[in-house]
């Protein structure tokens, strides 16, 4: 196991350019250390990034909020800036693991690890967040909805690293929101089903809706087909069997040690219904 501690971001990016092999970034370490312990990661190169202050912190720039990749979940929960502009995002993150893990786990780590159960991602999906990927030569922005390509697979190149998460300041403005993470207990739990939702209602009509789910497919995703169907309908116009049908096409829940696919599916249906009725 090779261990690298770059002295700054420039040094880090240079390093990434040179080292083409498999590597892991160590920030909070909450996922990485468990994977090392369980032997999932062996003899890999570790690049420590938690000390790079450029990658940490929450700031605003014109109409966007920038969250550094190594910002801890607790820093987001404690941030006044987030509270002012993205209260739904902040409130929902309280169900993230436990306060002890919130203090070390980072937002970038949760994205990079890319677990289907990742707590942060469904929220970022409905908020239309962007991920800033940096390499020595360029910096590009990828919508979180386009970031994942498969189970724990993403569009990051071997010379890139997540540097910021970018959310529009007005992302929540005028939206009615919903968030439910269902686990086997109330804290310290891994999601069996997560639904994040944002909608705008004018009169009786749902003029805009965004739905994102966790633990229901190989990576958390938006339910675009369901959204399209619901948009511009009133509650009475919505045929729920149609919603269920479309949902079935968008998610691929599995049965595992934690839960059953039928359960995951039915809970998702129930939660969507509850959100629509709210």
């Amino acid at each position: 196991m090779k261990f690298v501690k770059p002295k700054d971001v420039e040094n880090l990016l240079k390093n990434l350019e040179e080292d083409k092999g498999k590597k892991y970034f160590l920030a909070g370490g909450t996922d990485l250390n468990v994977q090392i312990k369980n032997g999932i990661i062996r003899d890999a190169n570790i690049i420590y990034i938690n000390h790079l202050t450029e990658l940490s912190g929450i700031s605003e720039e014109n109409n966007i909020i920038l969250i550094g990749a190594t910002t801890s979940i607790m820093d987001i929960l404690d941030s006044d800036l987030i509270k002012r502009h993205l209260p739904y995002f902040q409130r929902s993150l309280e169900s993230f693991a436990s306060p002890l893990l919130q203090n070390t786990a980072t937002i970038g780590g949760n994205i990079a690890n890319g677990s289907p159960t990742a707590d942060v991602i469904p929220l970022l999906l409905v908020l239309n967040a962007k991920v800033e990927l940096s390499s020595k030569s360029q910096c590009r922005l990828v919508y979180i909805k386009d970031f994942f390509t498969g189970y724990k697979q993403n569009v990051m190149k071997s010379n890139e690293i997540i540097t910021h998460i970018i959310i529009d300041k007005n992302a929540e403005k005028d939206f009615l929101t919903f968030y439910e993470k269902v686990g086997s207990r109330r804290t310290l739990t891994i999601s069996k089903v997560t639904l994040a939702g944002m909608k705008k209602v004018s009169g009786n009509r749902i003029s805009q809706i965004r739905l994102a789910v966790g633990s229901l497919s190989e990576f958390p995703r938006r339910l675009f087909k369901v959204e399209d169907y619901i948009t511009d309908k009133t509650l009475t116009e919505i045929d729920f069997s149609k919603v269920e049908n479309l949902l079935g096409k968008e998610i691929t829940p599995i049965t595992d040690l934690r839960s059953d696919k039928e359960y995951r599916y039915h809970v998702c249906v129930n939660l969507i219904r509850t959100f629509l009725n709210q």
């Binding site: 370490g29 250390n33 420590y48 607790m74 893990l101 203090n103 070390t104």
Partner: peptide, 14 residues
């Protein structure tokens, strides 16, 4: 801040 030291590394203490 309270954290779980079993999934932190030496480097985190630096």
């Amino acid at each position: 801040k309270p954290v779980t030291s079993c999934i932190l590394n030496a480097i985190h203490a630096d």
